[in-house]
């Protein structure tokens, strides 16, 4: 481009294939050369460790005893993981956490989005404030909510006392084994409801007013308008929100580690935390690898079934 005269004439004489004449490579080749590093690195960081994990899952290898002979143990690790009571307890805790966070976030998020659907005074500033919680680090949120949950001095306990009259020292959100699962659900809901709400808002604002006007002409009731127009059109957005929160919360680690550390007992030990313990506290490398593989299969299985359903709803 710096000397337009010469290059223009060249371009005119050799139309189209000028570049390949210079570099000796076709567009496709160049494209592949550019994409290759990304693919290679992603393979290196994801697929390679994954294969390593799968291989380890069939052995009795232990990282803290590197000199011992590594033996193939077949499916023994899987058998042990799947028949272990602790694993199932963890799975239950995870399911409880997943289901309630999704239900609460979708219900509250959608209700709020429905109320706030139209633009209003200070809309931009409002969005800025509402996205604040999700801009924080999960570890910081977990640490800080520990403070809010303190019996006696915590703000959360104070507010509950204020409204119900219970003694603020009589309950501990993170110390009680019945309340602890709820403590992580509440903190996660606080952090991520805005995200679900923004997704719902995007859905609601994508519905053209003309549809409602037409419904108004046909004298459809508000209730009917909601179920025949609003809900079906927002459903794909809602399902996307569920997918993201589901995947994220299945991986949940840092917030819960900071907040409850998996306790009391094993009541808030989610799968990620349990897996890390197996691998780095009990040092059962083979067994923990089998555990990881089981988790991968679960996540991919559930997610792909869900995405199929999502696509069906979208196409409707």
């Amino acid at each position: 481009m710096s000397n337009p005269d010469s290059s223009e004439t060249t371009a005119r004489t050799t139309p189209g294939n000028f570049k390949s004449a210079v570099t000796g490579l076709s567009d496709r080749a160049i494209a592949w050369i550019f994409v290759a590093p990304t693919i290679f690195l992603l393979l290196a960081v994801n697929i390679f460790p994954l294969i390593w994990t799968i291989v380890l899952s069939f052995t009795n290898y232990r990282v803290n005893r590197p000199n011992r002979d590594v033996e193939w143990v077949g499916l023994k690790n899987y058998q042990r993981i799947l028949t272990d009571n602790g694993t199932w307890e963890t799975m239950q805790a995870t399911a409880h956490f997943l289901i309630w966070t999704i239900v609460l976030q979708v219900l509250i998020g959608f209700a709020l989005a429905y109320l706030i659907n139209k633009k209003f005074k200070g809309n931009d500033l409002w969005t800025t404030i509402i996205v604040l919680p999700m801009m924080l680090s999960p570890a910081v949120v977990g640490t800080f909510w520990t403070f809010l949950y303190q019996p006696q001095i915590g703000l959360f306990n104070y507010l509950v006392t204020f409204f119900t009259g219970a003694d603020p020292a009589s309950f501990s959100m993170i110390g009680d084994k019945h309340l602890a699962p709820w403590s992580i659900i509440i903190a996660d809901t606080w952090m991520w409801t805005p995200f679900v709400m923004l997704i719902c808002l995007a859905g609601l604002r994508s519905i053209p007013d003309s549809i409602y006007e037409a419904a108004e002409c046909d004298r459809a009731s508000r209730w009917r308008q909601f179920w025949t127009i609003t809900f079906p059109l927002v459903l794909p957005f809602l399902m996307l929100a569920v997918l993201f929160r589901g995947i994220e919360n299945f991986k949940m680690f840092d917030l819960v580690v900071q907040l409850t550390g998996g306790g009391p007992g094993n009541t808030t030990t989610l799968t990620s935390i349990d897996l890390k313990r197996e691998a780095f506290e009990k040092w059962r490398t083979g067994q923990s690898s089998a555990y990881a593989v089981v988790l991968f299969v679960t996540v991919f299985g559930l997610a792909s079934i869900y995405v199929k359903a999502l696509n069906k709803v979208k196409d409707r």
Partner: peptide, 11 residues
């Protein structure tokens, strides 16, 4: 989508 903790050991 993969739980990071699953590949923590190899990394």
């Amino acid at each position: 989508m993969l739980p990071a903790v699953g590949v923590l050991m190899p990394v």
